[in-house]
């Protein structure tokens, strides 16, 4: 039977200062950043998070400072996806560009509680809450955004394209 991924639930306006406090920005090492991920909002997170876990939050997730360390820390902590009612725009771009999977889904965010088990289908946008027997529908990202996330971010994505002889490089064009 499908197990799904375990949820860590947070509220509205989770800012990048609590996702990774500036006092740890002396390093860019993802593993070190992950050790302090969510420290100022949930000291249990970094020690308790398991590979594949999902963060679910309310409105405006990732607001505040533009620090790329925030999605990097979440990704390095093993989180497989962040689902929120909405994302702050710089975090939204940073997450996609460093290859952290995110989805906007107000219904799922409203319904889901810490410890619930979810499955996510990025292609269709379907989120299933196995603990509550519920299904939610997020608007899936266009294929080029999914490709950037799957490639692990914009840099590996572009690098992969550069290695293909004769391939055009445009982001979000053609059959991308």
């Amino acid at each position: 039977m499908e197990q799904g991924c375990r949820v860590w639930k947070y509220g509205d306006n989770v800012d990048t200062d609590v996702i990774v406090p500036a006092r740890y920005l002396t390093t860019g090492d993802p593993v070190e950043l992950a050790a302090h991920c969510m420290e100022d909002i949930d000291p249990r997170f970094a020690a308790g998070v398991l590979r594949g876990d999902i963060i679910v939050a309310g409105e405006n997730f990732g607001c505040g400072s533009s620090r790329e360390h925030a999605p990097v820390a979440i990704k390095a902590s093993g989180v497989s996806c962040v689902i929120a009612k909405s994302f702050a725009r710089i975090f939204y771009r940073n997450a996609i560009n460093i290859g952290l999977a995110i989805l906007e889904c107000p219904e799922a965010a409203e319904d889901t509680r810490s410890g619930d088990r979810l499955t996510v289908d990025f292609e269709s946008g379907e989120i299933r809450n196995l603990s509550r027997g519920a299904r939610y529908r997020a608007v899936p990202f266009p294929p080029f955004v999914r490709n950037i996330m799957t490639a692990g971010g914009l840099i590996p994505y572009i690098r992969g394209k550069l290695l293909k002889p004769g391939a055009h490089l445009g982001v979000g064009q053609g059959g991308d």
Binding site: F144, I148, I158, L169, G170, G172
Partner: peptide, 12 residues
């Protein structure tokens, strides 16, 4: 810069 293009979500 390598691609010569960038992706954007157009704001309201």
């Amino acid at each position: 810069m390598a691609a010569g293009t960038a992706w954007f979500k157009v704001p309201g």
